[in-house]
Design a protein around this nucleic acid. Structure first.
Lengths: 269, 269
DNA sequence: ACGCGCAAGTGGTATGACCTCTTGGTCGGC
DNA sequence: GCCGACCAAGAGGTCATACCACTTGCGCGT
């Protein structure tokens, strides 16, 4: 019975750069840094913490990649305000690395967004409902341009997530949506106008259920929408495999589906 | 009707460091880099891409923060194998920054893990079921030590997520679990032994449903478990607010719940 | 009073050096 | 002949310094 320790994967408790991350974290937890604030200049931080500027920059870059800070050339390093936002690229990289399938993406979206739709029906403000209405209108208005349609499609789903009132759920949906957009952008042109009309209609139903404060109908509508989208996309002409890594050709016959991912062990350093 | 552009939040198409990230991304998409591989040495990458070593290091640090690569002192920079893993610290930072409430965390967990439990019931391998059984046993065995109990608690939920067979869902659960662990670690000692026994029992029910391949029961059991845990925790002695930022005292009366987060705009640079 | 421009300040990059750690090969002893 | 200790090459980590690019706001000139 192994009592596996829980460790952050970027465990930088020691080392200069981890010192920087920890310092900023302390500032945040002490309330000295709030969203919108500007951090001290790198050269100042260097003298404060007692490390060199390159080390400071390394730590700040780590924080920037996490979405905790944002550097603006010539101006300073700031903590972004607005809703909390994770780095959306991370999931896209993992998708490219591990070859996530469309079905897996839709499955993840279904789990997340069905829940988000239910919450949105219970809590959406009138402004958020208005935003949803606008995006639905944009969907119907862009049925002849799959690329523009896709943008409004994603925007609608992000708006639903935002209307859920739960910033964590909203952040996760943002990540998954960004990954989906990345992988869908190239193939979106293959969607038939009939499919787009269906999709627009289903978005409208989701919107109406949220507006009517009917959580269960909203959940079902979101579920049906994502199921149908997944089915439609599976029927489209051969997907461009070029964006996904191809397995190295092996002498033995390649398994037809996906192979399980064995945990090749790696030294812990 | 704004056609909001969809941009990655770490949009580094230009600039030296973004060049490095893009280069590695190309290597991945071309299949030249697979999980477990080692990247060229920093000094070599520098000459290949045509930038200096600090720039290379900046790009690699960004990738490391995303969980795409992992540097090991004295050995090299590698692409982690094993299941895809996002950086779990990011959510913890956002939690500290924006003061996520426990209710929001449980809500997010409910959405994600109820779905994961359903999938796990449909797909878990016998090995994964065995892992779940072990963790359940560890839970019953550690009821007198809340800290150890918490570790096995989290491990059980991670195992369920892994058994879902969906690596995206598993990654998201990992993130949320890590954040939850961070915020719960300090207050876990307050849990009564009776609550721990209840919790262990509910984990056992989840396990049994998954083992029985009963998806709907697994979903309900997970839902009930997280609901009850949320309720119990709300009843515990005053939670240590010290890890969460306190709002600056304002002259006007503070709204009782949480105020909406206005999007203070910030220059786009 | 208004606007233009310059200068101070800030992040971004480059160079080069040195340190620590890992790793694998080699040499010695058993 | 085998095994262990040592060492050296190579990798990432840090530092110091300089210079470049961009932003911002103050102040000068009109």
């Amino acid at each position: 019975m192994t009592t596996t320790a829980i460790r952050s994967n970027s465990d930088q408790a020691e080392g200069g750069t981890g010192q920087v991350v920890a310092h900023v974290r302390n500032l945040i937890e002490r309330g000295a840094l709030k969203p919108g604030d500007r951090l001290p200049a790198e050269r100042d931080l260097a003298t404060q913490i007692g490390v060199s500027r390159p080390t400071i920059r390394a730590g700040l870059r780590t924080l920037a990649a996490m979405g905790v800070v944002r550097s603006r050339h010539g101006s300073g390093t700031y903590i972004p305000d607005g809703p909390p936002a994770l780095n959306t690229d991370a999931l896209s990289f993992l998708a490219a690395l591990h070859g996530f399938t469309r079905e897996e993406m839709y499955e993840a979206r279904r789990i997340l967004e069905v829940g988000a739709a239910g919450l949105a029906a219970e809590r959406a403000t009138s402004e958020q409902v208005a935003t949803l209405a606008e995006e639905v209108a944009s969907l119907f208005a862009s049925m002849q341009d799959p690329q523009v349609f896709l943008v409004h499609d994603i925007n609608f789903h992000r708006a639903v997530a935002s209307a859920s009132g739960n910033p964590i759920v909203a952040s996760l949906v943002e990540m998954v949506s960004a990954m989906y957009y990345e992988s869908r952008r190239e193939t979106a042109v293959r969607a038939s106008e009939r499919d787009l009309r269906d999709a627009a209609e289903m978005h409208r139903r989701i919107y109406q259920a949220i507006r009517a404060r009917d959580a269960e109908t909203a959940r079902r509508a979101m579920h049906d929408h994502l199921m149908q989208a997944s089915r439609h996309q599976a029927q489209e002409p051969q997907p461009g495999h070029d964006s996904f890594p191809r397995r190295a050709p092996s002498s033995s016959s390649v398994p037809p589906k996906r192979r399980a991912r064995p945990h090749r062990r790696q030294p812990s350093n």
